[in-house]
Design a protein around this nucleic acid. Structure first.
Lengths: 232, 232
DNA sequence: CGGTCGGTTGAAGCTAATCAATTAGAGTGG
DNA sequence: CCACTCTAATTGATTAGCTTCAACCGACCG
């Protein structure tokens, strides 16, 4: 594939300060592929052979244990995943599947590690990328440990509201089933949680949600920048 | 303080491949201090002014939200904490307090960032350190999401058993109260969880635990290297 | 000897998962 | 265009897991 097919990749903070040569090497080795929905891209426990980027569509990261399954995160354009496994030359800790028809960029692990060794700027960009990842998981962990299901939903809605910028209105980024799993609850429980939030001005029709009383919703949610703010 | 006071610091994977000069610079700026038990070293939300190392003793990382508190991890010698906040020049996401009398090494954040910019080997060591952190939190997150309290306890016991190497015997690394919080449950619940494990050969007296039937305990716990193995 | 704190135990209540049944919607083929 | 089908989503009833509150025991310490 051609480097200039994907200017948005070059502009990612991960690659922006990389040398022209290293970037070209990486892209030469890379694959750009289209996948239908519901295709497994990798399974936890597999050797980390590729670094992935979602160019179009959406990917779910999920995991299984003790007979249960949970979605840990959604990745949307242009986001990467499983960078840490690549660098440690180890196995994936999460599985990944497309949740929509998606366009995926795959870079062989060895090429990434070579570039990491040879390109100093790239190595430093990776540090910032990983710090961001790390802090994001810590926030998710705190969210799960310190909040009830209803609180998690309320805060998630406020977060989407902030991100989407439409006053009093939110569009859910995925099916309620997947949203439930991301929030660490069952679909039934999510449905009831929306019911619980109705007195706080939350009205849901399909993926469209009206937040009619941000004031009282915030009182319930107690949003916390150290959990909910993607920037901090 | 003198560099050669702390040969074990120099030997950390984070510093091992660092240039002599950069390391000396860092250590010149560093503070080595003794703290009694139960002293708060930093609070979540504070600016990240120092990178910390536990040289002796033990530190709890914990967090608060929505009126609840949870211990997220214990750090023992020689471990670092809050590296990611330093690199992002941001605020701490977790609070830290000594849980025993402890000896703490503190390096000013700016010096760490300077060394990160000037020393290529150091920058790369940080990547591996952060990958390890990241993967550790992902494992904790999976543990919490995908297992019940009793399962988490059983797996934690098996993990300590593995680490300590004494067949059929485990010594708890902290008070049960703190262990409970680490496992994401109340002290009462931990007590009951130990009770539940009695038929599986688990006998507790104080911090001493006998694992009398590893076979059946494992059947219950279903240990999973992608959660429990510190190495993967 | 009294006090504090860690730990345990019991009872009650709450949160969330499970099981079961039903409804709503999206997509398919006649 | 409409019946048919499949899955998402909702709702109710029940159960499991966990927390909370309260009482109590025992060890350590002033």
């Amino acid at each position: 594939m051609r480097v200039d097919d994907l200017p948005e990749i070059r502009q990612l903070s991960l690659f922006r300060s990389m040398s022209e040569a290293s970037f070209a090497d990486l892209m030469k080795a890379a694959y750009l592929q289209n996948f239908p929905a519901q295709v497994d891209l990798l399974n936890e426990g597999d050797n980390a052979d590729f670094l992935f980027f979602v160019v179009e569509g959406c990917v779910e990261l999920y995991a299984n244990a003790n007979g249960r399954e949970g979605v840990l995160a959604l990745v949307r354009p242009v986001g990467s995943f499983i960078l840490a496994a690549i660098l440690e030359d180890s196995v994936y800790l999460m599985s990944a599947r497309t949740s929509e028809k998606s366009r995926i960029l795959m870079i062989p692990a060895q090429n990434v590690r070579d570039a990491f060794e040879s390109d100093d700027r790239f190595a430093r960009s990776i540090v910032l990328e990983l710090s961001g990842y790390f802090r994001a998981v810590v926030k998710e962990y705190k969210d799960l440990r310190l909040r009830t299901g209803v609180e998690r939903l309320a805060n998630r809605l406020l977060k989407y509201h902030q991100a989407q910028g439409a006053p009093g209105f939110v569009e859910l980024p995925c099916d309620k089933k997947i949203l439930a799993s991301i929030l660490g609850m069952t679909p039934e429980n999510l449905s009831r949680a929306f019911g619980t939030l109705k007195p706080y001005g939350v009205d849901v029709v399909g993926k469209k949600v009206v937040l009619g009383d941000l004031e009282s919703l915030s009182v319930l949610a107690k949003p916390n920048p150290l959990i909910d703010d993607p920037a901090t």
